[in-house]
Simulated scan of single mutants.
Amino acid sequence: MHAVPEVPCVRAYVALGANLGDAQAAVGRALADLGGLPRTRLVARSSLYRSAPVDAGGPDFVNAVAALDTQLSPLDLLDELQRLELEAGRERPYRNAPRTLDLDLLLHGDARIAEPRLVVPHPRMHERAFVLLPLAEIAPERVDAAQLAAVAGQAIQRL
């Protein structure tokens, strides 16, 4: 019998957002669902925030960020996130359309990935208060004062 090599656990951060239907309930349900992913444990979750859409129309978003300890590879984790989006009724009729659930992989350990399906660190995370404020709440070492100052003009409210 061959020993299965132990896959190291990596800290990953996922941004959650929704602005269709009961967005607050959708984000809350998704936070719970993240903890149920295979070989993954939810270790922290931010408060919920309300923010105006960025580069999009539609109602305000409800946002949060979750920290996960996972043994899933970045692409396997992306597949799981997209499965949760589909189960929540996510449709992609056009870029930045309003959505029932949006799950973005922000960081996966120290991985640097630039592939057609996935770019990590998330390429626009430092431009968005709805990512930086909840991320700073649960991982202050990942966000610096200059980054927060750069998004200070964006409308966002903790719920």
Results as ranks from 00 to 15, higher is better:
residue 121 P to F: 07
residue 6 E to M: 09
residue 38 P to Q: 04
residue 145 A to V: 09
residue 2 H to I: 11
residue 1 M to D: 15
residue 125 M to C: 07
residue 63 N to T: 11
residue 41 R to E: 10
residue 56 A to K: 02
residue 3 A to V: 15
residue 99 R to N: 02
residue 123 P to V: 03
residue 104 D to R: 03
residue 34 L to S: 06
residue 149 A to S: 13
residue 135 L to I: 05
residue 144 D to K: 12
residue 42 L to P: 05
residue 74 P to W: 09
residue 13 Y to L: 09
residue 55 D to E: 14
residue 145 A to F: 11
residue 83 R to N: 06
residue 11 R to Y: 03
residue 156 I to Y: 03
residue 156 I to W: 00
residue 122 H to T: 13
residue 6 E to L: 15
residue 25 A to M: 04
residue 96 N to F: 01
residue 129 A to E: 15
residue 2 H to G: 13
residue 31 L to Q: 14
residue 71 Q to W: 00
residue 123 P to L: 06
residue 131 V to C: 08
residue 81 L to N: 10
residue 127 E to S: 10
residue 137 E to S: 11
residue 141 E to W: 10
residue 144 D to S: 10
residue 76 D to V: 05
residue 5 P to K: 12
residue 22 D to K: 04
residue 24 Q to Y: 02
residue 144 D to T: 12
residue 149 A to Y: 03
residue 135 L to P: 02
residue 37 L to E: 05
residue 103 L to N: 14
residue 98 P to H: 08
residue 134 P to F: 11
residue 62 V to S: 05
residue 48 L to M: 09
residue 39 R to V: 04
residue 75 L to P: 00
residue 80 E to K: 00
residue 92 R to E: 04
residue 76 D to W: 01
residue 116 P to K: 10
residue 131 V to E: 07
residue 127 E to Q: 14
residue 98 P to N: 14
residue 1 M to W: 14
residue 129 A to H: 02
residue 4 V to C: 02
residue 21 G to F: 11
residue 34 L to W: 06
residue 72 L to V: 07
residue 8 P to E: 00
residue 20 L to N: 04
residue 150 A to K: 05
residue 41 R to L: 03
residue 127 E to M: 04
residue 31 L to N: 03
residue 96 N to W: 01
residue 59 P to R: 14
residue 3 A to C: 10
residue 125 M to G: 10
residue 141 E to D: 14
residue 22 D to P: 04
residue 130 F to D: 07
residue 2 H to E: 13
residue 43 V to G: 05
residue 52 A to M: 08
residue 86 L to T: 09
residue 28 G to F: 03
residue 56 A to Q: 12
residue 13 Y to T: 00
residue 99 R to V: 06
residue 147 Q to T: 04
residue 98 P to A: 10
residue 89 G to D: 11
residue 14 V to A: 05
residue 56 A to D: 12
residue 111 A to R: 09
residue 3 A to I: 12
residue 139 A to I: 11
residue 35 G to I: 11
residue 90 R to Q: 14
residue 143 V to N: 13
residue 10 V to N: 05
residue 95 R to I: 13
residue 12 A to D: 05
residue 59 P to A: 15
residue 121 P to Y: 02
residue 142 R to S: 09
residue 59 P to S: 14
residue 104 D to A: 11
